[in-house]
Design a protein around this nucleic acid. Structure first.
Lengths: 122, 122
DNA sequence: AGGGGCGTTCTGCTAGGAGCAGAACGGCAT
DNA sequence: ATGCCGTTCTGCTCCTAGCAGAACGCCCCT
């Protein structure tokens, strides 16, 4: 029965999740630590950690700051994130690492149950 | 003299601006009105308008809802946005339409003046 | 001229989350 | 044991996401 009410499902990976994954990947490729990037970007280390794990929704300015601190420009970053999206979707959307919290910040849950229109559009 | 203190400059287009531009472009290509997309996405029309103009910072769920309502998937959207970014940067970052408010929502202006680290990293 | 569709913008409002500091915890080395 | 690194918890403030309602400007009708 549960699946009838199972309209909480997020079939696609979320923006912030793919973003976080890509940021972490980029940082690790560079061999930087959280504190390195956080300092250069001028943000706190806990917050950067949360961004990388897809738990917080960073503002555009934050994204620019972190991208800058990583030495990548926004356009390239976005391409990389697009790759992440496909790849998260392909792998069932929660693999690679080990976490599984199905995402958290709903933002303001007042408005859109979303996707309902998407189905009609498809 | 002014240019010495001109460290408020955003050399790169911001994420939300490129996102908004691409969303509008996609909607117009489809011949949809704001209200059409807003209804399908389950969000208010004024808010969608603000998103498209790069004035508000939509959550990941919002982005997914709007993208869904436009019939595009996140990965493709991101590629398109990457294009917008390059294009905005190339054209001086404020052309095409006619608006010119140099962006607004600073988010929480407590932390990062940003970019300072980016320069060091470059 | 009047009206109607479309987008923008203003006011006002609530609730929730961005973003920080401080500290404590669990690996994984050494 | 000690130290580095990332994670996570608590707690806090201020901001803004996101809505409703309405008014305004435009352009196209006729």
């Amino acid at each position: 029965m549960a699946e009838i009410l199972d309209f909480k499902r997020t079939p696609e990976p979320l923006w912030r999740e793919a973003l976080g994954r890509k940021l972490r990947e980029t940082r690790e490729e560079r061999g930087d630590r959280l504190v390195d990037v956080a300092d250069r970007a001028g943000i706190s280390v806990q917050y950067l950690s949360e961004i990388e794990r897809g738990r917080k929704e960073p503002s555009s300015e934050m994204i620019a700051a972190v991208a800058g601190a990583l030495g990548v420009d926004l356009a390239d970053l976005l391409i990389g994130i697009a790759g992440q999206v496909r790849n998260l979707r392909a792998s069932g959307h929660l693999r690679t690492g080990s976490q599984f919290h199905t995402s958290r910040p709903t933002g303001r849950p007042s408005g859109p149950v979303a996707m309902v229109g998407a189905l009609m559009a498809a």
